[in-house]
Write a protein that binds this DNA or RNA. Structure first.
Lengths: 260, 260
DNA sequence: CAGTGGTCTAGACCACTGG
DNA sequence: CAGTGGTCTAGACCACTGC
C-alpha cells in the first residue's frame, strides 16, 4: 500500500510518529499525493481524475478529506470540477478563454467582437542564456535556451510584441515551423507536445518606450509609450519554465486586473 | 425567528416551496445573511463576529454549513479567521500590508527597506461630476463629488500621482485637513470616519506620457513614460465608491501581479 | 437510471490562543 | 483551562450529466 498518505493508521492523521515540525493535516498530504500524480503525468491535461470515492478508497481516507484536497487544487486552477461528470485536469487547450494568462483586453470590453489574434512568428532560435535569463529560469549562464519572438495582431493591427525564452532541455525539438503550424494557444502546444503545463505566473509591469526595432515590428512611432510586461511562468512545484517579455499597445487596449 | 435563513424546516435546505430558479444552497443563504450584517454595520471592521457555533444556533443550521459560508467570505477577504481566537471583519487599518490594493513595489523587491510613503495632499475639492466620473460611480452627470489629488513619495522621490473622486453624499465632511491629519491608509479613514469599506477593485492599466502639470508634480521629464492605473473601488454588493486615476513612475518600481 | 460532484448534518477530536 | 477555529469521519440526501 505505497499509496497510503503516511505510515499512520487507517483513519487517523499522522504527525504522531515522526518529528515533523508544526503538523500537516491529512488533506494536505492527500493534496500533495494528487499533485505528484499530476506532475508525474498519471493523469494528463483534459483527462478526468478518478472519482472522489475512488480516491478516498485508494488513500484510505474519507470522501470529505479527498474533497477538501480537490477543493484547494480546483481553487488554484489545477483541477476543474464538473458536477455530474467528474473532476478534470485543467488545460490551456479547449478552454473558453483563449489565453488564460493574457490580461490585455480591447477598450470596448467586447473581447468576442474582436475575434482571435493573428499570430506571426518572427523567429525561433537556439541560443545561450544570458545572465538574467538564466537567473529567471534557474539555469546557469550559457545554458541552452530557446528564444521565440512573435507579433500578435487584432483586426490586422499589430498590438503585442513578445520575446520569450524557454529552457532548452524540456523543449528540445521546438522550431519556428512547429510554432507556425500550431493552431491554438502556445501553452496548449507546450502541454501536448512537451508535457509542460504552465500553472502559475508572476508579472512585472512597466511603462517604456520601444527601441527602433521594436517600434518597427509593432509599426508604431518610437515616441509611443508601451506597456512592458515581463512574465515568469511556472509549472508544478513552482519550477520556472518560461520567461516572456511583452510590449503591449495600450492606445486601443488596456491591461485589466481584479483586486480582491 | 426572523433570523432563520428561509421559511424552510429546521434542517432541510429550502427551494421546496418557492419557485426560485435553479436552487440556492443553504450555505449561500447564510453567506448572504452574514453579508447583510456586514453591510448593515452589525459588526464593524476589525471586530470579531460571533463564533461559528453561535451563528449556527442563530441560523438554525449546523456548524459545518456556517463554516462553509465563512470560508467563502474569508476567501474573498471580507473576513479573517484566526485560529484559537475568532473570526474578524477585515479592515484596511491595522493590516500588515499598508496598502492592500497598491501593487507597485520597488525593483529591489524589498518593500520593508523602502519604508512608508510620504504623502502630500495637493488638494481636495467639492465639484460636479463629469460624464465619465458620474458613469463610473453610478451617479448622474453634475452630481456632487469630491476630488482629491495627492502625491506619494518614497525616500523623498515623488513616485505616484493620484487623482480620485468620491461620491459626495457618503463622504460629506471630508476635507484636505482631515486627510492631512490622518495617519494610515486612506481606505482606513474611509472605514473609520465614513463607514465605507472598500471590498474589491478593478484596474485598467495603460502606458502614457504625462501632461505638463503632471510631469511637474512628479518632477519627471515630460517624455518619461508612466503607468496609468485607473481603479474603480467597490464596497459591499459591488457598489462603486471611488474612482482613482494614478500615474506611477516605473523606472525604480514596477507593478507586480500574480496570475493563478 | 447509474454515477458523479454538491450539500448538510452530527459528533469526535485536535491545534491554537488568551487569560 | 475554556473557547475558538481546524480536521476528520460517516452517512444521508440532492442536483446534474450522460447513456
Amino acid at each position: 500500500m505505497s499509496t497510503s498518505p503516511t505510515a499512520a493508521a487507517d483513519t487517523a492523521p499522522s504527525s504522531t510518529s515522526s518529528t515533523t515540525p508544526s503538523f500537516s493535516p491529512l488533506y494536505q498530504q492527500i493534496k500533495s499525493l494528487i499533485l505528484q500524480s499530476l506532475h508525474g503525468g498519471e493523469w494528463k491535461p483534459g483527462e478526468p481524475i478518478p472519482s472522489e470515492i475512488e480516491l478516498a478508497g485508494r488513500f484510505r481516507v474519507s470522501q470529505g478529506t479527498v474533497r477538501k484536497a480537490i477543493d484547494e487544487l480546483a481553487a488554484e486552477n489545477l483541477l476543474v470540477r464538473r458536477q455530474g461528470v467528474g473532476t478534470f485536469v485543467a488545460t490551456h487547450a479547449e478552454q473558453h478563454v483563449q489565453y488564460r494568462f493574457l490580461k490585455l483586453v480591447p477598450d470596448s470590453g467586447d473581447i468576442e467582437a474582436e475575434g482571435p489574434a493573428q499570430r506571426e512568428i518572427v523567429d525561433c532560435r537556439r541560443q545561450r542564456a544570458s545572465a538574467d535569463v538564466a537567473r529567471a529560469l534557474a539555469l546557469r549562464t550559457g545554458d541552452a535556451v530557446l528564444q521565440v519572438r512573435r507579433v500578435l495582431a487584432y483586426r490586422g493591427v499589430p498590438t503585442i510584441l513578445e520575446e520569450l525564452w524557454l529552457p532548452g532541455t524540456p523543449f528540445k525539438g521546438l522550431t519556428a515551423e512547429r510554432l507556425r503550424a500550431w493552431r491554438g494557444p502556445m501553452y496548449a502546444l507546450f502541454e501536448t507536445e512537451f508535457g509542460v503545463r504552465m500553472v502559475r505566473a508572476e508579472e512585472k509591469i512597466r511603462a517604456v518606450l520601444p527601441d527602433r526595432a521594436q517600434a518597427e515590428l509593432l509599426a508604431v512611432p518610437a515616441a509611443m509609450p508601451l506597456l512592458s510586461v515581463e512574465r515568469l511562468a511556472l509549472t508544478y512545484h513552482d519550477i520556472p519554465m518560461e520567461l516572456r517579455r511583452g510590449l503591449y499597445r495600450t492606445d486601443t487596449h488596456h491591461y485589466r486586473n481584479q483586486l480582491g
